[in-house]
């Protein structure tokens, strides 16, 4: 474990908690893409299948359970409890256009052709594009609540910090995983225009609104 990976995990945890609290406290999921949240729940489910068979550390197990629990709790709040506030008219990104190609790619490009490894690879690829429905929804509505922008910033930073963690592990632990690195680069690049808007607008106290 290095500081970059720990910072990344904490940023990821913060994002997940901020989103859950935002929906719970405001009792509304306006502006939140339910499709992205379903994709994230799928990412954690397919990545943490070895949760009970492959013990790494108490930290690893606890964090995985928190991620899984919060992901499903968020999906539940969006599609069940606060369904009335779900903005389905703007959450129209075709998620199947992500899941199917990612599923095919996981079959073709992986480290080992075994069920667990293919599912892990699927989760890595899917995570890199899972935020697209959310970004698409913001581009359609033309704006985002400030709390939602903080959620997205923390979520985007988590994988950016992981990229630094992989550089660190390459030099100090001779550790290298091309699949995770390439997918992590794609994932972080997708946030770049949001990062620009976040830093130039939200941090200046303005509301995030896209030129319609």
């Amino acid at each position: 474990m290095n500081i970059f990976r720990l910072a990344g995990d904490l940023s990821h945890l913060a994002a997940i908690i901020v989103l859950l609290l935002k929906i719970w406290k405001t009792r509304s999921c306006a502006g939140i893409s339910g499709k992205s949240q379903i994709l994230f729940a799928l990412v954690f489910t397919t990545r943490y299948l070895d949760l009970f068979t492959n013990f790494i550390s108490p930290y690893n197990t606890v964090m995985k359970m928190i991620y899984l629990g919060c992901a499903y709790a968020t999906v539940y709040l969006i599609y069940m409890k606060f369904k009335a506030t779900y903005d389905g008219n703007h959450d129209t990104f075709r998620a199947e256009f992500l899941v199917v190609p990612v599923g095919g790619l996981a079959f073709l490009v992986n480290h080992e052709f075994s069920p667990l490894e293919i599912l892990w690879t699927f989760s890595i690829y899917l995570e890199s594009v899972a935020i697209l429905p959310q970004l698409f929804m913001i581009s359609k509505t033309g704006e985002a609540e400030t709390i939602t922008t903080h959620y997205l910033f923390a979520l985007g930073m988590y994988r950016a910090l992981y990229l630094i963690n992989w550089i660190w592990r390459y030099y100090f632990e001779n550790f290298f995983d091309l699949i995770a690195i390439v997918a992590g680069c794609v994932q972080t690049i997708l946030y770049c225009d949001f990062f620009y808007l976040y830093i130039t607008k939200v941090l200046q106290g303005k509301k995030l609104s896209l030129p319609a």
Partner: peptide, 10 residues
């Protein structure tokens, strides 16, 4: 270069 040996990352 060691490929990913075990999934020790989240």
């Amino acid at each position: 270069i060691l490929k990913r040996l075990l999934k020790d990352e989240l």
